[in-house]
Design a protein around this nucleic acid. Structure first.
Length: 291
DNA sequence: GCGGGTGTTCACGC
DNA sequence: CGCGTGAACACCCG
């Protein structure tokens, strides 16, 4: 579900409340979500520990564990969500089940992991489809995981030269494929890739090697512009994502192709948004303005 | 009942 | 070995 802007929003929310507060208890209702088969060990290990500032690489959250040289890695995959609750009030969020009053209910039947903090705060991990995972790693394992990721788009390492270099490695690939490849560029997912390609007026099916200089430059600019805007708007709520204050991510208002199959293109007003299947994913584009 | 879904990995068949 | 496709994970929804 969440892509870079949503994961970044969740990271910032959690960092307002979680770091430097001791863990008092961890409940694991679905041990299979703990990769490496060490659910009991992790439960025991985290007790009494404090998390440091949570970091992000692509869509992966990295939770340093103070005084331990260990890290908790969490991936939300399609439907994972972190909800932070304090004294019956929701103060940090993710995607969630809602009651008839449209308010968040936690824990719920999708709450598989609960982390209790000494100040009374509770971090709930919900995951309807149970694709997400928790994993405890040491420094060396962390380095190995992290190095597999490609360029981080919202950092100064994401230069136009680096972007062009990445494109150079997969000239025969379709552009959508490379943009989705986490080992090339970290953090883009299906929604933002469709939006970026539309904004850059490039068809998702175009071969990387056949893009001209202007198209490549525009893609580079749109990746940064769209992600920045999406982070600023606290992500996209397509179904039921909620941010730190229980509000929806505002970027849905800015989606121009995703979920608009059959509608007239908002940019050229001429084309009708088409939906095809590409690299296994639903893909939206305007046949008129995307060349 | 069927197919699709903001993600990723693995098993195949060329 | 590289590439592309499809399934798998589990559950909801139209």
């Amino acid at each position: 579900m969440p892509e870079l802007p949503e994961v970044e929003t969740i990271r910032r929310s959690l960092n307002r409340y979680v770091p430097q507060i001791a863990v008092t208890k961890v409940l694991i209702h679905k041990p299979k979500l703990i990769h490496g088969g060490k659910a009991r060990a992790m439960q025991f290990f985290l007790k009494g520990k404090k998390f440091g500032i949570i970091e992000r690489r692509g869509k992966l959250l990295i939770w340093p564990i103070a005084n331990s040289s260990q890290y908790l890695l969490t991936h939300l995959k399609m439907t994972g969500q972190f909800i932070y609750k304090d004294k019956n009030k929701i103060i940090a969020g993710g995607h969630s089940e809602k009651n008839s009053d449209d308010a968040l209910v936690v824990p719920n039947k999708y709450t598989h992991i609960e982390i209790y903090l000494k100040n009374g705060g509770i971090i709930y991990y919900n995951d309807m489809r149970q694709f997400g995972y928790f994993k405890l790693v040491n420094q060396k394992q962390l380095a190995k995981v992290v190095q597999k990721f490609g360029i981080e788009p919202l950092t100064k390492g994401f230069t136009i030269n680096n972007f062009f270099q990445v494109l150079q490695t997969k000239k025969k690939s379709k552009i959508k494929q490379i943009l989705l490849d986490q080992t090339k560029i970290a953090g883009l997912g299906n929604i933002y890739v469709d939006e970026i390609l539309h904004a850059a007026r490039v068809r998702p099916t175009r071969r990387v090697g056949r893009l001209n200089l202007v198209e490549k430059k525009t893609l580079y600019q749109k990746i940064t512009a769209i992600l920045k805007r999406a982070v600023k708007e606290r992500g996209t709520t397509f179904s039921d994502y909620l941010d730190a204050d229980g509000n929806k991510g505002n970027y849905i208002k800015y989606l121009r192709v995703y979920g608009r199959a059959g509608e007239p293109c908002l940019t050229c007003k001429v084309g009708k948004i088409k939906k095809i299947k590409l690299v296994g994913r639903g893909t939206h584009y305007c046949p008129n303005c995307q060349k």
